[in-house]
Nucleic acid binder design. Sequence first.
DNA 1: CGGAATTGTTACAGTTTTGTTAAAAACATA
DNA 2: TATGTTTTTAACAAAACTGTAACAATTCCG
Lengths: 227, 227
Amino acid sequence: MPAHIFIAEDETSIITLLKYNLEKESYKVSFCENGEQALKQIKDKHPDLILMDWMLPDLSGVEVCKNLKKDNKYNDIPIIMLTAKGEEEDKLRAFDTGADDYVTKPFSQKELNARIKSLLRRSKPYSSVDVVEFTDLKIDRITKRVYRNNVEISLGPTEFKLLDFFIKNPKRVYSREQLLNNVWGENIYVETRTVDVHIRRLRQAINIDKTKPLIRTVRSAGYSLES
Amino acid sequence: MPAHIFIAEDETSIITLLKYNLEKESYKVSFCENGEQALKQIKDKHPDLILMDWMLPDLSGVEVCKNLKKDNKYNDIPIIMLTAKGEEEDKLRAFDTGADDYVTKPFSQKELNARIKSLLRRSKPYSSVDVVEFTDLKIDRITKRVYRNNVEISLGPTEFKLLDFFIKNPKRVYSREQLLNNVWGENIYVETRTVDVHIRRLRQAINIDKTKPLIRTVRSAGYSLES
DNA sequence: CGGAATTGTTACAGTTTTGTTAAAAACATA
DNA sequence: TATGTTTTTAACAAAACTGTAACAATTCCG
């Protein structure tokens, strides 16, 4: 289970470099080149650590940072600010907004890696984001347990990941392709019909006392988690 | 209850400055000017954070750091290295020995304060007690003895470390890689399946009177300690 | 030194999980 | 109602994963 690092940075060359470097360290990496998108994607993907450019075209990195730190759900994600300016004022402002560390461009890859490792090591073992509830469903990512009405339910690994993904954005409809990409992985070839089968297995598992269906089929579009 | 910060630093002028500054921020401050003494006092006082000079007259800061990080009781105390050298090699070595951050002298007081705040915010609650209990299990880190229902159990060194690690965060599921990193060490090459074998040995050892299983297997994820 | 304890590796068996397929069912629309 | 499309369901074989025992290498200790 590699740590997932999110990069918000508008210089393509830096992204490329970072991505190469971090993936070599076997982190899972995703990125985004502007602030609005970054905020959205971070809330969606909930990475383990964020590398954030101090300046971003539309919504500045500082703003994104502030926004995240205000939200209980996301303020535990450590953030490293990437800043081109060496001035002290900026550094302090980075910390003030809630950043956990910063590096000044151009930075040493090795040093960055060390800082990342240090932050990941220190990040809280349990945080509110690890236990997510939706209606009578509860999923604990730390203990890998799932409950319905406080009754534990046993799920296979794929079904767990599937539910975990759905619960991040309940009510949102995902196509089979989206589910394959997010639950199975990006470069894996699996039949789209396979999703149906796992949806069935998940349904079967969470439909303890034939209450509400919870997983909705949207014909010719996909599936969603409903209350 | 203000956070207690310990300073290990041999330049009196810096100590004075730091002390003045930190007490103004209403931290409780204590200090020491050489390595041997520092190590002793740290173990005695168990501060919340340490500012450690990279070079100390007798026992270097690096050595003190290493020593602390090896000890389960103290490795959760965040350490900021104070180094006069700006060279990358030193910085990296600081992180390697387990330091959580470093600043280069001369440093900005404001920046240091920010880094301290960030580290304190992020630091774990102490797992620094000698005797830890979890359900009917008791582990004494000093005497290295383990009891179940007050009956002593004999464990090999690896099994002891394994249980000790599990008991820090009971119920949390750890992957085999995480266990290898935390119990065996970071740069050691051991097959992941070896974990299974030691889990079995630990299970065998603690399953005295066939009570509860205690160690849970989470398929495709790892193991956890359960009540 | 010699025996006991500890350690990491491997192979095998047993079980669970997974993806695929095909048939049945459900749905939408003319 | 008839028809074509989409989803549900069951069954099955392949793949993945874990538990266990046995073994050799190493360390520990009297």
